[in-house]
């Protein structure tokens, strides 16, 4: 739109390099989506094949492979067979549950604080807000070592609370919700209070519904951050039951260094890990764009 009006000189010819750039941006996705369904001999073939010649689901689940068989056997395990005990399905469930709880929990907790700060200020609430604002300057590297020690001292290593609780109180979400709640008229809140609604009720029935766009805007970065979180689970989890997808991918990629034929299950795993985010993005593209750019345009 704007670019168009300003730059009629950018003809299709000038756009051509950008189309090429778009193609190269998409290549990793194409490569992942096709290689996940190629046979292992085809994946390691030289030169690489540009499309799937022999379609197979063996990279996901290979019915002919024997778990525990020697590495040099002809049959390779699918990604659902590699992690024998609790398995890839368990990691998937862990990632989904942890991401969901973190998104919902952090949104609810932060919006409660923001509501109280704006509509029910108390002596010291200004100082509290300043503290929250200041804490946004602190990078996560500063807190990660003490937090690991805290989790260890609480005996939380290999537990869901270690994966979820430390990341639940998000100051930037409070800041964002505060901006949104400032726009809600006091009369609305006071009317509900006169009607006898308690604080919890007002927050749930009056404030939260009005916050919907802000909730969506914060949910997206929180969800992406949690789904891709690698370092924290790596530190606090070392058993199979609490593994998340990024950790499983890390292990697969590590195996790859030793045996390139591990690429089949790895591509399948990458495909399965990316699929939910691609689907969510395609379904909620508008919300993604608005959510991610709303923080920037205000500044």
């Amino acid at each position: 739109m704007v670019g168009e009006r300003q730059h009629p000189l950018l003809s299709t010819l000038l756009r051509l390099p950008f189309y090429l750039l778009a193609v190269s941006v998409m290549i990793p996705y194409y490569w992942m989506a096709t290689n996940a369904f190629k046979t292992i001999p085809e994946i390691v073939r030289n030169p690489p094949t540009w499309w799937v010649h022999t379609f197979t689901l063996d990279n996901f689940f290979n019915p002919d492979a024997v778990p525990g068989a020697p590495k040099n056997s002809a049959e390779f395990l699918g990604v659902f067979q590699i992690f024998a005990n609790s398995g890839f399905g368990q990691f998937y469930l862990n990632s989904v549950v942890i991401t969901l709880i973190t998104v919902v929990g952090s949104l609810l907790l932060a919006s409660l604080v923001a509501y109280v700060l704006v509509k029910r200020p108390f002596p010291g609430s200004g100082a509290l807000f300043a503290l929250l604002l200041g804490s946004m300057m602190i990078p996560w590297e500063v807190t990660i070592i003490p937090n690991f020690l805290t989790v260890r001292d609480l005996g939380w290593i290999n537990s869901y609370q270690a994966l979820i609780l430390p990341g639940l109180a998000k100051a930037f979400a409070v800041f964002f919700f505060r901006q949104a709640i400032l726009g809600i008229p006091d009369d609305l809140v006071d009317a509900a209070r006169i009607d006898g609604a308690g604080e919890l009720r007002i927050w749930w029935s009056v404030v939260l519904p009005l916050l919907r766009p802000a909730l969506a805007a914060i949910a997206i970065p929180v969800m992406l951050g949690e789904w891709n979180n690698y370092l924290w689970p790596l530190l606090v989890v070392n058993d199979d039951a609490h593994q998340t997808l990024p950790l499983a991918l890390g292990k697969l990629a590590g195996n790859l260094t030793y045996d390139p034929r591990g690429a089949g299950p790895m591509m399948a795993a990458s495909f399965l890990v990316s699929l939910p985010m691609v689907t969510v993005f395609l379904l909620f593209q508008r919300q993604f764009v608005q959510g991610l750019s709303s923080g920037a345009t205000k500044g």
Partner: peptide, 27 residues
């Protein structure tokens, strides 16, 4: 949407694909 996709579905899922793309083997 094409250019924005890596911001949404990049990171962990795709990094091992890159490892493969940059592989020194002939594939």
């Amino acid at each position: 949407a094409c250019f924005f996709l890596p911001s949404v579905a990049g990171g962990v899922g795709l990094i091992s694909v890159f490892k493969w793309l940059f592989s020194s083997e002939d594939f």
